[in-house]
Design a protein around this nucleic acid. Structure first.
Length: 111
DNA sequence: ATGGTGACGTCGG
DNA sequence: GCCGACGCCACCA
């Protein structure tokens, strides 16, 4: 029998595909998954996703590019350092030029 | 089975 | 332009 992929599984797949130096928002992922009306679920999925090494939850931020979930990394500065290590600029827990580096799964994976 | 929660997003005033 | 409230759906107790 096919494994019942939960909503989380789909989120993992998308987050794993986020290239280095790029970031995406909960809304974009939610939109890609079809639950665009409830981006909260994406954040919820991330809560479990950040426990997986293959899921770069630090590349997922809110629509403003703000590191809203930094607190869930165990260390508030952990998320920022991870992003900076990938070449992103983070100031005041906010990704600079977020719209320029945003990775939209709907556009990147449209093929 | 029901209720509450939640790393967001959008609308209204 | 800023602030407040609602909605949304899946997981946990």
């Amino acid at each position: 029998m096919a494994k019942q992929y939960s909503f989380f599984e789909d989120v993992y797949e998308v987050v794993k595909l986020i290239p280095k130096g790029r970031a995406t928002s909960y809304g974009l992922i939610a939109n890609y998954l079809g639950t665009k009306l409830s981006a909260r679920m994406v954040g919820w999925a991330m809560n479990a996703a950040h426990g997986l090494p293959d899921v770069p939850a630090h590349r997922v931020v809110n629509r403003e590019g703000l590191l809203t979930g930094k607190v869930h990394f165990g260390s508030p500065s952990r998320m920022q350092e991870l992003l900076e290590a990938e070449g992103l600029t983070v100031v005041e827990d906010k990704i600079q030029h977020f719209k320029e580096i945003v990775w939209d799964p709907m556009k990147e994976l449209e093929n």
